[in-house]
C-alpha cells in the first residue's frame, strides 16, 4: 500500500445570486500513512464532505494536488456515504458484485458477507433491510474493491446507540482483517477516540487543520468506556481550541 498526500490550496464555491462566494477549504494538508485509521473531526457544515468528494474525484473544481505514492492521481477509493446509496433494484449481493473489477472473483465477497453477518440476507432487496444492515452492505461494497483509501462520511449517523455500536465493532473487525487506509469523518469525539489511530481536528470554513492527535489508547483496551472517556476529558482540558469545535 502507498502513502497518500493531500494538499488543497483552495476550494471556492462561486457566488450564486445573493449568496456571495464561499471559501470552503484553504491550505489544507493531510498525509495518510498506509493502513492508518484517521478520523476527521470538525464542526458540522465545515466542508468535510466536500473534502471527501475532492479525494474521491467527484469534485474536480479546486486548487491543489493529490499524490498517491509519487504519482499525481486519484487513489482508488471505497466510499461509504452518509446514506448507503444502494441500488434498490439489485439484491445485496448484486449491489456488491456490481462494483468489482472484471478480474475479481465474485466469490471474494463471501468472507466479507460472513464477517458483516449478512450471508443470510445476501439475496434480499435493499428496501427490506434495516438502516443498520444497509450501512453494513455499503461497508462491504467499499472493502470489496480493495481500495487504496476508504472514505467514510459519518456512516453511523442516525443509528440508535446499540446498532451504531454493533456496526462500529463489525467495521473494526473487518478493518483488522483487511487493514486499509481509512478517512473517517465524524463530529462525535467519542466515536473518533474509539476508532482512530490519529484524529485530525478541522476548523470551521475556510477549513484547515487545527491539530493532530495520536490516540494512545491501545486497541484492545478500547472496549472499556472508562479509559476512552478519561482520554476525552484529558483532550478537552489540554486543548481549549478543540472544545470550540465540538
Amino acid at each position: 500500500m502507498t502513502p497518500i498526500q493531500i494538499n488543497i490550496n483552495s476550494k471556492i464555491y462561486p457566488a450564486v445570486e445573493k449568496a456571495g462566494q464561499h471559501v470552503a477549504i484553504a491550505d489544507l494538508k493531510l498525509s495518510l500513512n498506509s493502513g492508518e485509521f484517521i478520523c476527521l473531526v470538525g464542526p458540522s457544515g465545515c466542508g468535510k464532505t466536500t473534502l471527501l468528494n475532492i479525494i474521491a474525484g467527484l469534485d474536480t473544481d479546486y486548487e491543489g494536488e493529490i499524490i498517491v505514492g509519487r504519482q499525481h492521481t486519484h487513489p482508488k477509493i471505497g466510499y461509504i456515504f452518509q446514506n448507503p446509496r444502494l441500488l434498490p433494484w439489485r439484491t445485496v449481493r448484486e449491489n456488491i458484485e456490481l462494483v468489482l473489477d472484471s478480474h475479481q472473483s465474485t466469490d471474494s465477497i463471501d468472507p466479507l458477507l460472513e464477517t458483516m453477518q449478512l450471508t443470510q440476507a445476501q439475496h434480499v432487496y435493499p428496501e427490506r433491510l434495516s438502516l443498520g444492515m444497509s450501512r453494513r452492505v455499503s461497508i462491504i461494497r467499499a472493502f470489496a474493491v480493495d481500495p487504496e483509501v476508504l472514505l467514510m462520511d459519518e456512516p453511523f449517523v442516525s443509528l440508535d446507540a446499540p446498532t451504531a455500536r454493533q456496526v462500529r465493532e463489525l467495521l473494526l473487525k473487518l478493518w483488522q482483517q483487511r487493514p486499509h487506509t481509512v478517512l473517517f469523518v465524524t463530529h462525535d469525539l467519542r466515536e473518533a477516540i474509539a476508532l482512530a489511530d490519529r484524529i485530525i481536528f478541522l476548523s470551521a470554513p475556510p477549513m484547515h487543520v487545527i491539530r493532530e492527535i495520536i490516540v494512545p489508547v491501545p486497541r484492545n483496551e478500547r472496549r472499556d468506556e472508562a479509559s476512552l472517556e478519561a482520554f476525552r476529558q484529558q483532550l478537552l482540558q489540554n486543548y481549549s481550541d478543540i472544545k470550540q469545535l465540538l
Partner: peptide
C-alpha cells in the same frame, strides 16, 4: 444524482452505469 455519484466513484463505466443505474 447520489446514485450517479456512487457509480462514478466506483468507476462503473458507461455501460454498467447505463444498465444498472440509469435504465432501472
Amino acid at each position: 444524482q447520489d446514485l450517479l455519484d456512487m457509480a462514478r466513484c466506483y468507476h462503473l463505466g458507461k455501460r454498467k452505469t447505463l444498465v444498472h443505474v440509469i435504465w432501472p
